[in-house]
């Protein structure tokens, strides 16, 4: 799980072009949206693309997103349970 969390942090930094942010700067339990990393709805779309492209996960129920993208840790848990690649 630790490696998956690190991978996700690196991928988030890359796809969201978070210049000057390092993986260790991201608290895996902190909120991704709002106060934490301060991401917005367009970033949510980028994360959905990331999940599908890198892990073969298609989010069919939009209401799931809020829970899945709560933090890097919740993302990692969902990826670990649902990944197809």
């Amino acid at each position: 799980m630790e490696q998956l969390i690190l991978d996700l942090k690196q991928q988030i930094i890359e796809v969201l072009n978070l210049e000057d942010v390092k993986p260790e700067d991201i608290d895996e339990n902190a909120s991704l949206f709002g106060e934490g990393l301060g991401l917005d709805s367009i970033d949510a779309l980028e994360l959905i693309v990331l999940m599908e492209k890198n892990y073969g996960i298609k989010l069919r129920d939009p209401s799931q997103g809020k829970q899945i993208f709560t933090s890097v840790k919740t993302m990692a848990e969902y990826v670990a349970a649902n990944r197809t690649k």
Partner: peptide, 13 residues
């Protein structure tokens, strides 16, 4: 490259 899938919205915008 991706067969018209996995398109990143920021680039499109």
């Amino acid at each position: 490259m991706e067969g018209e899938e996995f398109l990143q919205p920021a680039f499109f915008i």
